[in-house]
């Protein structure tokens, strides 16, 4: 994507380009339509040329067990016994980067330009500038980025920024056989979600709703949930995600103030030296050893101040 579309950049304190106003995009994942086929995971691996190591079964349908530097999206399976209906519900959520409007990873990153946010809402990592510190993981409210053990660089879903830049939909969207994943302008996706929610409510899911959490300024990956009142049912999707207050303190106003205080301490020292001056020992006044003062008898000490 063009550099004039980079509207936010990690470890940068001056304004980034703001003049262009392209529309925001969004991916909408409808959990009520997902059948858990994992075609999106395969498409992601194919398009992004990723081949994760084959792991082992940990007793769930999740495969692999977790996101990794080489698995940027993952179907997470949760079994939920609905107390109202008595039904066993299989809640399947495609996990991956949410592309927050206020990205915690970008706020935490210390390397200028290693994380960028594009005007269309995509949050992308520039691995050539990544220093491998893992602060993005510390900043992320969704536990998404992963450091590769091969190169110590952070990776996550790019929302197929390379495809989107040339007018294509992300690979996972293209491959989804049930239409559970759709892609378009954020506005259109919200309209589409609203239609889906009306449908779900008619089918008995009274709490169906859209997951586009305000705590991170909204996201560019949104979910339609049957139980939008309890997002955590979906394999621990955060109920109210936000950048942690600790991260805001760590990366917010505290550090410029600390820099100012350190600079002020240096200046205070300098001006103390200028005004008060150094603390010197007058070696001339040193009476020396507190021993017997020997005087040459031929020398007569004359002190005009001394009264005879």
């Amino acid at each position: 994507m063009a550099t004039q579309d980079i509207i936010a950049r990690s470890a940068t304190t001056t304004p980034m380009p703001q003049v262009r106003q392209p529309g925001e995009v969004a991916k909408l994942i409808d959990t009520s339509k997902c059948i858990g086929c994992k075609a999106c995971q395969v498409a992601c691996s194919e398009w992004n040329e990723l081949r994760d190591e084959v792991g082992s079964n940990a007793g769930t349908y999740d495969n692999p067990n977790d996101l990794s530097a080489e698995s940027w999206t993952l179907m997470r399976f949760a079994e939920y016994e609905n107390p109202d209906s008595g039904n066993l519900e299989w809640l399947i959520r495609k996990d991956g980067c949410m592309h927050c409007a206020e990205p915690g990873c970008l706020a935490a990153c210390p390397s200028p330009g290693a994380i960028v946010k594009y005007a269309n809402g995509i949050v992308d990592f520039n691995q050539d500038k990544c220093i491998g510190c893992g602060y993005c993981i510390t900043g992320c409210p969704f536990d998404i980025p992963r450091i590769s053990q091969k190169d110590k660089k952070a990776y996550k879903c790019t929302l197929c920024s390379d495809r989107v830049a040339v007018g294509l939909e992300p690979a996972c969207v293209k491959t989804c056989p049930t239409g559970a994943i759709v892609f378009g302008s954020k506005e259109d996706m919200q309209v589409h979600a609203a239609e889906r929610i009306v449908d779900l409510k008619e089918r008995g899911f009274a709490n169906a709703g859209l997951y586009d959490p305000d705590g991170v300024g909204g996201t560019h990956v949104m979910y339609v949930l049957h139980h939008a009142d309890q997002p955590s049912l979906y394999a621990g999707l955060p109920d109210a995600p936000a950048i942690s207050p600790l991260v805001s303190l760590w990366k917010g106003v505290a550090k410029p103030l600390a820099l100012l205080a350190m600079g002020a301490t240096v200046l205070a020292g300098f001006f103390h030296y200028v005004r008060v001056g150094p603390n010197r020992v007058d070696e001339e006044e040193d009476p020396g050893e507190p021993t017997v003062h020997t005087v040459d008898p031929s020398v007569h000490v004359v002190d005009p101040n001394k009264q005879p």
């Binding site: 470890a11 304190t13 210390p110 390397s111 500038k129 220093i131 510190c133 110590k152 820099l259």
Partner: peptide
């Protein structure tokens, strides 16, 4: 160098950010 973006240039003294 990692404390605040204004001082990231100090990373050059150590051979870069990585």
């Amino acid at each position: 160098a990692l404390f605040h973006p204004a001082l990231f240039w100090l990373s050059s003294l150590f051979g870069g950010g990585v």
